[in-house]
Design a binder for these strands. Structure first.
Length: 251
DNA sequence: GTCTCGATCGAA
DNA sequence: TCGATCGAGACA
């Protein structure tokens, strides 16, 4: 375990301990699991797998399977999405934009293919390792509180990538565990970030007022598909967005 | 096979 | 505001 000195954040030692949450925690509707994940602590690494980094979750998004057009599982089982169709409590990692990894926890029952995307958190242990991992990907320094802000940043800080796809959070010897932490009490919800399908469903959940929560951004495509004969919408012709204030929408 | 686009991030 | 960068998935 790496000390967290000089980061300005308390170590929260009491929360980075205890038994991992059981599979029954994950084997529920993702809309129930998602808000219940806030305040929980995800730990990756440890004595047998290198330096541990722990993150208290502050922002997540629920994705259902067959009835959620925004879900990777919407079009059925593929090699990439196979993990989502399996038992709850496993990690689903996916690669986006040619450079980023994002991490989900599989929820629900076998074959249902629902999951919760882990979007942001606060590093509560292993901050120096976390900072080094972020620094390897950017030129400017990032503040301690923003180390795990954003799904790709969160995944980077925890050292997760393709090798963690399918990992079982509930296995006794797993290098990645989800600890009870202290469940959040002030939870809000709003539309998911960056999705172009089913963009109106308020399936993003976050800890009210937490500075690590990411700003809201609508999906990049204004229309699901351009009209016939038009290959792409002109940049200036997108539908105007509603004002979103500080980026954290009302629930 | 070929093409399009993406559950993002960071620099300009 | 825009470019990076490449795999998945759709389509021919």
């Amino acid at each position: 375990m790496t000390p967290v000195a000089r980061t300005g954040e308390p170590p929260d030692a009491g929360e980075v301990a205890g038994p991992a949450l059981p599979r029954s925690f994950f084997a529920r509707d993702p809309l129930d699991v998602a808000p219940d994940l806030l305040g929980r602590v995800l730990v990756a690494g440890g004595p047998d797998a290198g330096a541990a980094v722990a993150v208290r979750l502050t922002e997540v998004e629920a994705y259902r399977g067959a009835d959620d057009p925004a879900s990777h599982a919407f079009r059925g089982r593929t090699r990439r999405t196979a993990v989502m169709f399996g038992p709850a409590g496993h990690l689903y990692l996916y690669f986006v934009y040619g450079m980023h990894w994002c991490v989900n926890v599989v929820t629900g029952w076998d074959g249902e293919a629902s999951a919760v995307l882990l979007r942001a958190g606060r590093v509560v242990a292993g901050a120096d390792v976390a900072a080094a991992r972020r620094a390897a990907r950017r030129r400017t320094a990032v503040t301690a509180g923003a180390l795990a802000r954003g799904p790709a940043a969160l995944t980077t800080v925890l050292g997760l990538d393709a090798g963690a796809d399918g990992a079982d959070l509930c296995a006794a010897d797993s290098a990645v565990r989800l600890l009870p932490g202290v469940p959040a009490t002030a939870v809000r919800s709003g539309p998911r970030v960056g999705v172009s399908a089913a963009a109106d469903r308020p399936w993003r959940f976050w800890v009210d007022g937490d500075p690590t929560v990411t700003a809201y951004r609508a999906g990049t495509r204004a229309q699901r598909r351009p009209p016939a004969g038009v290959t792409r919408a002109a940049p200036g012709l997108r539908e105007p967005l509603d004002a979103v204030g500080d980026g954290r929408m009302e629930g």
